[in-house]
Computed example of a mutant assay.
Amino acid sequence: MRASRLLRILLILQNRGRRTAAQLAAELECVPRTILRDVDAMTEAGLPIIVHQGNQGGIELGFNYRTRLTGLTEEEARAMAIQLSAPTHAIDALGMPAALHSARAKFIESLPDRARKAAEAALAEISVAAPDVASDPYVIALAEAVRDRRIVRLRARSGASVECHPARLSFDGVAWALHDARAPDVAIPQGDWGDLNISARRYCD
């Protein structure tokens, strides 16, 4: 969480210039004291952070330090902002809406000024809503098994359990399917998973 906040502070300062601790705290939904501690950590890490004291003071980046995502047109930036703001059942089922929200904020802050303003305008002009979808513990567990190449037993509590080497999860907008590394073209629909037993054993690709 802190690493994510530090990156957002860096992107805000490089794109918007000098900001007070109070302004940064309001943007990042924390208290000014947290911002000041973060600034100290960034300075210790070697980033050229300059803190100005007094009524006209604030926090800014020195030495023209910049890191930018370049190459996007304003229209492309608008499209990406809308896409990243659109809710998806897949993200919700995987328990990742907070991660997507954080990634969207970082993406927008990393854009050049004109593209960033276009993206922010798109978010203000267009809102996409969808029913809340609870995260699915089975999908989350299988996503981790896919990532770690863990052997999984489907329908583990039945008399017809099946061993699977999970290589990929797919989502068609309605339901999930699991693909076994030994038969990647065969989709095992979510309704056939049953109870899962995820082994500590890994399989080889």
Score class of each variant (00 low, 15 high):
residue 22 A to S: 13
residue 137 P to H: 10
residue 77 A to W: 01
residue 5 R to G: 00
residue 110 S to L: 14
residue 186 V to H: 10
residue 63 F to N: 11
residue 45 A to K: 11
residue 106 K to T: 08
residue 99 A to R: 10
residue 81 A to Y: 03
residue 89 H to M: 11
residue 145 A to E: 04
residue 31 V to D: 06
residue 128 V to P: 01
residue 10 L to G: 03
residue 68 R to W: 12
residue 163 E to T: 11
residue 154 L to E: 00
residue 138 Y to K: 14
residue 148 D to M: 08
residue 77 A to F: 04
residue 6 L to P: 04
residue 26 A to K: 09
residue 165 H to M: 10
residue 36 L to Y: 09
residue 202 R to Q: 13
residue 55 N to V: 07
residue 140 I to K: 13
residue 118 A to V: 04
residue 4 S to Q: 11
residue 148 D to W: 04
residue 130 A to T: 01
residue 174 V to L: 08
residue 118 A to Q: 04
residue 151 I to D: 01
residue 69 L to P: 00
residue 37 R to K: 12
residue 102 S to C: 11
residue 168 R to G: 06
residue 86 A to G: 02
residue 25 A to T: 07
residue 99 A to F: 08
residue 65 Y to N: 08
residue 168 R to N: 10
residue 98 A to S: 13
residue 67 T to P: 05
residue 125 E to Y: 02
residue 117 K to S: 14
residue 102 S to R: 12
residue 113 D to P: 04
residue 84 L to E: 05
residue 32 P to G: 04
residue 187 A to L: 02
residue 39 V to Q: 03
residue 204 C to L: 15
residue 30 C to N: 08
residue 57 G to Q: 10
residue 17 G to H: 06
residue 131 P to K: 12
residue 84 L to G: 05
residue 142 L to N: 01
residue 119 A to M: 09
residue 49 I to W: 02
residue 74 E to V: 07
residue 201 R to N: 11
residue 142 L to M: 07
residue 138 Y to L: 14
residue 130 A to I: 02
residue 192 D to N: 12
residue 89 H to S: 15
residue 186 V to W: 10
residue 90 A to I: 05
residue 117 K to N: 15
